[in-house]
Amino acid sequence: MSPVETSVSARKRRHSLALTVGLVLVGINLSVAVLTLFWTPYDPLNASGGRLEAPSLLHWLGTDRLGRDLLTQLMIGARTALLVGIGAIAIGAMIGVSLGVVAAFATRLADDVMAATLDILIAFPTLLLAMLVVAASDSASLWTAILALGLAISAIVARLTRILAKRVLRQDYIVASRTSGTSWVGVVFRHVLPNIWPTLSINFALQFGLAVIAEASLSYLGLGAPPPNASWGRLLQEAQGTVYTAPIGAIAPGLALVALVIGMNLLADGLRDIADPTRGRSR
């Protein structure tokens, strides 16, 4: 085996490690989230335990200040986090990619207007935007949080898509494809989207992590999913006052949050290498 091939396969191995770890972390989260639909150790509303109990065989992670089982809360929090991440990314991707592609084709004036609008939207703090959406819908719910985060993400995705699509549209193969009679719509679906997908998908994973964290912040501020929906953010907020007496109440949701976000990022890294066959080529 030549040295070049060795380095390529070594690179592949390293990336498949990232993919594996990412899959495991996200997979655990996903399994737990699905599991909570059928079974949780306790009823999430059951406050039968003592207040702030330490971990025991009955309550593996102890109980919160209302006497609810912390593991149950944490597990349901995983479901909330995934729901928020997937929902926000779905909304953000649909609006963002469409807008970005349209902007890439727009006339110079329309493009400038769109770019400026997007920049303003992006400069607008996500949490503030989310608060506005929540205020406008006069009650905080999981869906207003998802919608708000989706809108914030769509601006970022749109700007990225616009830049990436413009770059692809300048390539010779677009002209080559056009000369053989491909319509612009065909060009978008056959060449532009596949070519920007590797970069976009990484960004989606990144935004996924940020959305999960943003939802935690919203819940922390009391603007996320209202009780009894458990969310890691609210668990953190509730544990704040008792962090010295029962540190596990803050540590557990914190770790869960970090594991999911890291898992998503690793997964994105691994997926990119599958999506982009030209990586590993030395230019």
């Binding site: 390539q171 193969y173 002209v175 070519n195």
Partner: peptide
């Protein structure tokens, strides 16, 4: 076209 590398979709 002149440059066959750039005239083909790399992906």
């Amino acid at each position: 076209f002149q440059e066959p590398l750039t005239a083909l979709d790399p992906l």
